[in-house]
Design a protein around this nucleic acid. Sequence first.
DNA 1: ATTATCTATAGATCTATAGATAATGC
DNA 2: ATTATCTATAGATCTATAGATAATGC
Lengths: 249, 249
Amino acid sequence: MAERAVRKTPQRRTKAAQRARTLERILDAAEYLFSRHGLNGVALRDVAQRVGVHTSLMHYYFADKQRLFEAVFTRRAGITSSRRLDALDRYEREAGASVTVEGALRAFLDTDLELYIEGGKGWKNFAAFAARVSNSPEGAALMDLHFDPVVLKLIGILKRALPGCADADIFWGYDFVSGALMHVLARTGRIDRLSGGVCQSEDFAAVKDRLAGFMAAGFIALCADRRKAGKSRRRPAVGRRRARGAAAR
Amino acid sequence: MAERAVRKTPQRRTKAAQRARTLERILDAAEYLFSRHGLNGVALRDVAQRVGVHTSLMHYYFADKQRLFEAVFTRRAGITSSRRLDALDRYEREAGASVTVEGALRAFLDTDLELYIEGGKGWKNFAAFAARVSNSPEGAALMDLHFDPVVLKLIGILKRALPGCADADIFWGYDFVSGALMHVLARTGRIDRLSGGVCQSEDFAAVKDRLAGFMAAGFIALCADRRKAGKSRRRPAVGRRRARGAAAR
DNA sequence: ATTATCTATAGATCTATAGATAATGC
DNA sequence: ATTATCTATAGATCTATAGATAATGC
């Protein structure tokens, strides 16, 4: 019935190109499926079917399922990590001594959100994938491996913007920021239903308008409150540090 | 070798009691395992082994794995939900016309955190379980079903505490709060490593000291910022609402 | 007489490997 | 001559059900 010209893989290029193309398609399919069903909710056959190849090809390109999962994470994690490192560097250079909490958070958060806004479907899938990883214990090692450098850079700037603030407050503040960001990236649709359509999970631009400012105010209040409350709190005196020394540069 | 007195199930009580006891043990085991590996990372056999009974007993008590998963969620979700509803009610009654953002958030967040601090292992496992559910699309329906009433109650009070604040800002603010809380509840250990031991995932008391105040400042800044920035933002004029009307009460 | 638990097993699914086939590479 | 893809299949695992056994319930 079909004419002779019909081929399974139209226009095959060089082997290197073919390999690269198939790898990308496998990673895209895996990213999509893992983001929705998690590591164990996806069979290699599901990924293969989505790409339109045989399951055994998954093993040709990746040692096993765990490696495929990690490859999905690694592919984009490095990109967003270095983009944000660059943004933080640039901000530090521009702001000099007058760095602010909001400025640092904008470099960290908005740079990331822009990527998901402008990067197309693949990046949106990665966002949901990463969100899932971030709230699961198995994912912790992946987060550490790829994001520690950016996060520590951010925290360094936050410390300069909040002289005299206890380290614990800054780290906990970061944990709140990270949790909020990751939850937004998950796009579960819950906020859409809760708000009766006033907010939309997919609307990262709306998040970008609000997240950094919101969190910056949180940090500032936290450090102020804690300094005020200082001695009367439940934390034993041992835990309190002389904030003075750390204030300078 | 063993004396005759050794029994598999020591001191069997009434059937109703035995049933209740086994049900609890199954739910505990499932809660623990699901919180760490997710729905698809756990086999019914794993749960049965942990309890020390045969796999087929899982099907005797629960129709299938999905139902077991839901039962784990349902068992405690109702309790924390109504505890927080009560706390919000009480706060509303006490504060009257002078409700504050921080007051409302303390009733909502601290009441929850206290439960995990004082409730023992089971509640801590549930916390991690819920955190996992909250960042996954499959979990959205469970979150909606059990938590919509408390959340809408909280949002009602926040609106009164922030007269003139756009609904979208309040809902997004809630999304940030929820994300931060859930991330904390996941206790992945990442903050421990990032901070070099200064913070500990397990230390919910430290979170309780900080979270509500942090988030309250975020809300207040968000609403103030957005009113200021109002017309120049990317959101088309249609989206802006006359805030006045909603202020009164 | 009812119900909690166990034994046995069917059927489905899933990962992974060995080896065949059909392209590209020089 | 190498490599991308497919066929075939082993072995493991997993869910779910039917039916047996051993307790409690009156």
